[in-house]
Design a protein around this nucleic acid. Sequence first.
DNA 1: ATCTTACCTTAGACTTAATCTAACAACCGT
DNA 2: ACGGTTGTTAGATTAAGTCTAAGGTAAGAT
Lengths: 143, 143
Amino acid sequence: MADRETRNTVETWLREAELRLTPQRFAVLEYLARAQGHPTADQIAAEINRRFPRASRATVYNTLAALREAGLVREFVLGDGVARYESNTEAHHHFVCRACGRLEDVPPEAFKAPARVELAGGHEVETVEIVLRGLCAACKKKA
Amino acid sequence: MADRETRNTVETWLREAELRLTPQRFAVLEYLARAQGHPTADQIAAEINRRFPRASRATVYNTLAALREAGLVREFVLGDGVARYESNTEAHHHFVCRACGRLEDVPPEAFKAPARVELAGGHEVETVEIVLRGLCAACKKKA
DNA sequence: ATCTTACCTTAGACTTAATCTAACAACCGT
DNA sequence: ACGGTTGTTAGATTAAGTCTAAGGTAAGAT
């Protein structure tokens, strides 16, 4: 994706979510849009503070919470008690290796989950989070 | 389950897992076996310290880690960064209300997941963790 | 353009879950 | 009983995340 294009996209996303377009928010969302992988709040903070604009820890957390509520980023926790983030692309699941901690995306077709879930008791299901755990190929070989 | 029976079962579980039978471990596992719900480490510690045997925080965490590794208890985190535990019964999923935080078990048949998962790349999937999020019936009514 | 104000950001203190450390205690085979 | 291994402890420590109070800024209104 070209630079100008990303910039416009990020701006549009924020405007459509009715979030004020601050340099900090822009930086966080742009970083997540470009990032490969599943950065933690700390990594995000470190990365966007390498140059302009400065964002305090509180702001990074506030921003991530706002983006999450707006549905622009996904947040998930892996058992180590550290939240990770990714900008919303299409639905997919995650695999975590219990030996090396390696975290991988799992394409949705590898694990069929119903698109809509109906629950007894009238609960309204909004999201489905699926985490597969086990040994990655490399660690399996070593063991 | 009668008292004597629970006691014997807990002892057997620990022996079969090749864990030494200490009063602290016994207390943690027995509490989890009886407990309804999904207690946190803190709740477990508070509860078993109401009477005999005393267990320090470190021991509770050590014990829970040992029990988890032995497959006797399940550990999961819900986004509030607090680990929760339950003694292993049959597989089931969880539903979390984003408004009130209410946590409920979801019977496996409500959400069909394949018993065995094969992943590309040769990763060995050992467990599948599924968390449904949304609004519980009560919060939905309020909103 | 400037004003206004509601919203955003900030530094740093604070909270809290969880881990670490180093010493002590219990268990088990010999 | 002895010695090595394993388990437990209190308290210090770490680290993720939240809170507070004060100042700054985006964006619509004038």
